[in-house]
């Protein structure tokens, strides 16, 4: 269980989040959605103690402020929206960094397996800085996967906290990575992902939370959240959700501007 209570976050003097309650369950994918600049990344950064915030964040029942960095690192892996690397590391060197606490023989093959899992099997000896944006994001995901390779350790779930893990990927790799997240969750781990794509979120997420202007607008299952009025209010434009009975999965078809709400 990941519980964030009454989160207020400020960057500089500006308050970005105005008291958000957010929970995510292990064994599920929880998607955070919302328009650009609504505070999705900031919420994830507050949960991971990257920005100043007030409120309480509990990870598996423990207040994260009281936990040591290495203790947190064993329980959750965090993928930022983009990662700039200062030195010319190769891809496999980057991924191995997920095993910072030392590589035992038992774990030595994990980096290569993580790389294959994100579809970068042959890329180990390429320079990270020479990869495309989408490939870099997948290499970083492989690193984060290494860090929490087993979704459950000592009956405690481990967490993947991901900021736009698929935003810069092509559709094939989007599905690959979403499936990877689904697999991690189905084996008992917890996944929280900031998502850009509502259709992918509806397809894979168990829970969705919509953020608008620093507040939680609504959270619930995709069925609850993927409603015309909810999405139209969140994104400030008229949106039409379709749910064909055969697929049982909601999706939005892009329309030409149907007029902005006041």
């Amino acid at each position: 269980m990941l519980e964030a209570t009454n989160i207020r976050a400020r960057i500089g003097k500006v308050e970005i989040l105005h008291g958000i309650d957010f929970t995510a369950k292990a064994g599920q994918i929880t998607a955070i959605v919302g328009p650009n600049g609504s505070g999705k990344s900031t919420l994830l950064k507050a949960i991971t103690d990257e920005v100043d915030f007030t409120g309480v964040v509990r990870l598996n029942g423990q207040d994260t402020v009281t936990m040591h960095p290495w203790e947190l690192a064993t329980q959750r892996g965090v993928l930022p929206q983009a990662t700039m690397l200062a030195f010319p590391f190769t891809v496999i060197e980057v991924v191995r960094m997920g095993l910072l606490r030392g590589i035992s023989d038992e774990r030595a093959d994990i980096p290569a397996r993580a790389l294959s899992a994100v579809g970068l099997g042959g890329y180990g000896n390429r320079f990270y800085q020479e990869l495309s944006g989408g490939e870099q994001q997948r290499a970083q995901l492989a690193r984060v996967l290494c860090q929490v390779w087993h979704p459950i350790v000592d009956r405690t779930p481990r967490w993947l906290l991901l900021d736009e893990p698929v935003a810069s990927l092509d559709i094939g790799h989007q599905l690959l990575v979403m499936q990877l997240m689904k697999d991690f969750a189905s084996r008992g781990g917890g996944v929280v992902a900031v998502m850009h794509d509502l259709n992918l979120s509806a397809m894979f997420a168990d829970q969705m939370a919509i953020i608008k202007a620093g507040n939680l607008l609504l959270s619930g299952t995709p069925g609850v959240v993927m409603q015309d009025d909810v999405l139209s209010k969140a994104y400030g434009c008229t949106l039409k959700v379709n749910t064909p009975a055969a697929a049982g999965q909601s999706y939005i078809l892009p329309h030409l501007a149907l007029g902005h709400l006041p």
Partner: peptide, 21 residues
């Protein structure tokens, strides 16, 4: 050594890797 390797990813990511930044 390990700490500086982590810092190459930025301070926030280094902390997430478990480094006492």
């Amino acid at each position: 050594g390990n700490g500086l390797n982590g810092l190459a990813f930025g301070e926030a990511t280094a902390a997430h890797m478990g480094i006492p930044v």
